[in-house]
Lab assay of single mutants.
Amino acid sequence: LETFPLDVLVNTAAEDLPRGVDPSRKENYLSDEDFKAVFGMTRSAFANLPLWKQQNLKKEKGLF
């Protein structure tokens, strides 16, 4: 999966995202380093959170 810089994904409308980016899964296009910096946890820890908590975190970080 291709990764993009944080500033390309945060608070970006679906139509302005790079081609192929799923707007409902912007976090998947962050590098592992950016993911950890944004969410303060690994991808696996994030995946283990309840869906509502994942969505709330994504909203807080501008990735929803």
Rank of each mutant, 00 (worst) to 15 (best):
V8L: 15
S31Q: 04
T12K: 11
Y29K: 03
Y29E: 03
D22L: 04
T42V: 08
A13P: 13
G20E: 09
F39C: 00
V38T: 10
G20I: 08
N28H: 11
T12N: 07
F64P: 05
E60W: 08
K26H: 02
S24L: 15
F46V: 00
G40M: 10
D32K: 06
V21C: 04
Y29Q: 02
S24K: 10
K36Y: 15
F35K: 00
K26C: 06
D16T: 07
K53Q: 14
P23G: 07
W52S: 10
P50I: 01
L63E: 02
L30E: 01
N28Q: 15
T42S: 13
G40I: 04
L17T: 05
K53H: 13
N28D: 15
P18N: 03
L1S: 12
L51R: 10
K36G: 10
S31A: 07
S44P: 08
K61Q: 08
E15M: 07
L9F: 06
V10S: 07
N11L: 07
A13S: 13
K59H: 09
P5Q: 05
L6D: 03
L17H: 04
R19Q: 15
N28K: 09
F39R: 00
Y29P: 01
S24H: 13
D22T: 03
T3M: 08
K53V: 14
L51I: 12
R43D: 00
N56M: 14
G20N: 11
Q54Y: 01
S31Y: 01
A45K: 10
T12D: 06
N56V: 14
K53C: 13
A14P: 14
N28F: 11
F64H: 15
D32T: 07
P5H: 04
T12P: 05
L30W: 02
P18T: 03
L51E: 09
F4Y: 15
F35A: 00
K53A: 12
S31E: 04
K58L: 07
D32A: 09
V10N: 04
T12M: 11
G20D: 07
G20Q: 08
L57E: 03
A37I: 13
A13M: 10
A13E: 10
L17D: 03
K36A: 14
V38F: 06
E15N: 11
D16M: 10
Y29W: 12
L49A: 02
N56H: 13
E2G: 13
R43S: 03
S44F: 13
E2D: 11
E33P: 08
L1K: 12
A14F: 09
S31F: 02
F35W: 03
N11G: 10
L51P: 09
K53W: 11
D22H: 05
G62H: 06
G20R: 06
K61C: 08
D7L: 10
D7M: 09
L57Q: 02
A45S: 11
Y29A: 05
Q55P: 00
Y29I: 01
L49T: 02
M41E: 00
E15T: 08
K61S: 08
D22G: 01
L6I: 13
D16W: 07
M41H: 01
F46R: 00
D34R: 01
D22S: 04
A14Q: 10
F64K: 06
R43V: 03
N11D: 08
E60D: 11
L6V: 09
R25I: 06
L57M: 12
N48F: 10
P18C: 06
D7H: 15
P23L: 07
E33C: 08
